[in-house]
Simulated assay, not measured.
Amino acid sequence: MIKHEEKYCPRCKTEFECKVGSIQLCQCSDIKLENKELEYIRGLYENCLCAKCMKELKTEFHNQNFQNKLKDILGVFYRSPKK
């Protein structure tokens, strides 16, 4: 029996179907995460996220790393991006 579960994304509150019993068919299986990206997301959320939020957090992780590298290079001349 394939286990499917209706869940709500803890980040955006969108409802999605989690297919933990058939993970290759789950909405999250299209999102490829490197270990550091996965660690970043796990540090923020304990439960499954919708695919949209996973993509956004992957981008956020890389943007944050880029800003940290700029800060290291520019030192006192670094200015945080406006949000």
Results as ranks from 00 to 15, higher is better:
E5V: 08
I2V: 15
I73Y: 14
C12I: 07
L74G: 00
I2G: 00
E17M: 09
E17I: 07
E37D: 00
K32T: 15
V76P: 00
I31C: 12
Q64N: 13
K13M: 08
S80A: 15
P10L: 03
K52G: 04
K32L: 14
C50E: 03
H4C: 03
L70M: 11
K71I: 06
R79I: 15
E6C: 04
Q67W: 13
F61M: 05
L44T: 01
C28S: 11
K83A: 12
C12K: 06
L57G: 02
K36H: 14
H62P: 00
V20Y: 05
L74C: 05
R11G: 09
E15S: 00
L57M: 12
K55F: 13
Q24A: 15
R11D: 10
K52V: 14
M1A: 10
S22H: 09
I23T: 05
F66D: 09
E56M: 13
E39L: 13
E37C: 03
Q27G: 04
S80F: 01
E17D: 11
C53L: 05
P81Y: 09
M1F: 11
K55H: 09
E6H: 06
N63S: 11
F77P: 00
S29E: 08
Y78R: 01
L25E: 15
V20Q: 05
S22G: 01
Y40G: 06
E56A: 15
I41T: 07
H4G: 00
K82Y: 12
Y45W: 04
G21D: 01
E34N: 06
E60A: 11
F66C: 11
C12E: 00
C9V: 07
C50D: 07
Q67V: 00
Q67G: 00
L70V: 07
E46D: 10
L38V: 05
K58H: 04
E37F: 09
E15T: 02
K32N: 09
F16H: 01
H4N: 13
E15N: 03
E39K: 12
K36P: 02
P10C: 08
N63H: 12
K19C: 08
C28T: 07
E15H: 01
L49N: 00
Y45N: 02
K83I: 07
F16V: 03
E6N: 08
Q67R: 15
Q24P: 00
